[in-house]
C-alpha cells in the first residue's frame, strides 16, 4: 500500500509530501504520524510540501488537522517549503492555516523548532 515516509531527525519528524494526496493516503499519514510521535517521543514535526504545485481545500484542511493532532500530542508542527502559487491559492480559498507555524524551507523550520523545543 502507498505510504508517505516519515523520517526521524533526533527529536523531530520529517514528512515530505511528494505525491497527490487523497483521502486514504491522508488518513494513513495521520495515523502513522500520531503513532510515531508517541513512539519516538518527538517534540516537533516538519511537513515539507515544497514538491506540491497544487493544493486544494482538502489538502489544506488535512494539513491543519494534522498540525492540530500533533499539537495535542505536544509536538510543534511547522509547514515548510510552500510554493508562492500554493500560498496564493490557499489564501484565495480562505484557508490561512491559522495556528500552523510556517517556514520558508526545512532549514528554517528546524531552527524554529530548535528554539522552541
Amino acid at each position: 500500500m502507498e505510504r508517505i515516509p516519515i523520517l526521524r531527525m533526533g527529536k523531530l519528524l520529517l514528512v515530505t509530501i511528494q505525491v497527490d494526496m487523497h483521502d486514504r493516503l491522508a488518513m494513513t499519514l495521520q495515523e502513522d504520524l500520531t503513532e510515531r510521535i508517541v513512539k519516538e517521543r518527538a517534540t516537533g514535526v516538519l511537513i515539507d510540501i515544497s514538491a506540491l504545485d497544487i493544493v486544494d481545500s482538502f489538502i489544506g484542511r488535512m494539513i491543519s488537522n494534522t498540525a492540530a493532532m500533533a499539537k495535542i500530542l505536544d509536538a510543534k508542527t511547522v509547514v515548510v517549503g510552500m510554493q508562492p502559487a500554493v500560498a496564493i491559492t490557499l489564501v484565495e480559498l480562505g484557508l490561512t492555516l491559522e495556528g500552523v507555524i510556517t517556514a520558508l524551507n526545512v532549514e528554517r523550520g528546524i531552527s524554529l523548532l530548535g528554539h522552541n523545543a
Binding site: V79, A87, V91, T102
Partner: peptide
C-alpha cells in the same frame, strides 16, 4: 490581509 496571510504561509 490576504497578502499578509500569503506571506505568512511562506514563513515570512
Amino acid at each position: 490581509l490576504k497578502t499578509i496571510a500569503a506571506a505568512r504561509l511562506m514563513g515570512a
